[in-house]
């Protein structure tokens, strides 16, 4: 029983690790968090957001865009170069338009996440460091 549970958790951890290492995971995560913070700082009812104009809907549009770009980075990493830079732009726009970018935290996280998504890719091969398991062989 416990052996089975251990095997299952190990399988889940391995799956999660390969998920993380084949896409800009952390950059996408910061983008999603940044978007969530910006939406949270301007969290109005749907009716208000639709009828109230830009000052009510900006949080949903800019924060929602950041969440969307984070998800694109995860599930369509092919577009990382584009969505990374767009996420940086959205995070900057949110500072002006959406409550100082979710009280500043959202903008900073969005810039960090967007940069990380943009810069994700093949790293230069590094000389092997003894005892470290940083490298993942692909194919």
């Amino acid at each position: 029983m416990t052996a089975q549970v251990r095997r299952r958790t190990r399988a889940a951890r391995t799956a999660f690790r390969s998920f993380r290492r084949t896409r800009p995971f952390w950059g996408g995560l910061w983008c999603i968090l940044a978007g969530a913070l910006i939406v949270r700082s301007m969290f109005f009812s749907f009716l208000l957001a639709v009828s109230g104009g830009w000052s009510y809907s900006a949080g949903y549009i800019l924060g929602g865009g950041l969440v969307l770009f984070g998800l694109v980075a995860w599930f369509a990493p092919h577009y990382r170069g584009l969505v990374g830079l767009l996420a940086v732009g959205l995070a900057l726009a949110a500072f002006v338009a959406a409550n100082l970018g979710g009280y500043l935290v959202g903008s900073v996280l969005g810039i960090l996440g967007g940069s990380m998504v943009w810069a994700w890719g093949e790293k230069a091969p590094r000389r092997r460091v003894a005892g470290r398991r940083r490298a993942v062989p692909v194919s």
Partner: peptide, 24 residues
């Protein structure tokens, strides 16, 4: 070693610095 390492490359500092400078 012919392995490909995937991850955030150092060039992330370029938009990061640019974005933070624009924010400041």
């Amino acid at each position: 070693m012919t392995e490909v390492r995937l991850g955030t490359r150092r060039r992330a500092l370029v938009p990061l610095a640019g974005g933070l400078a624009a924010l400041i």
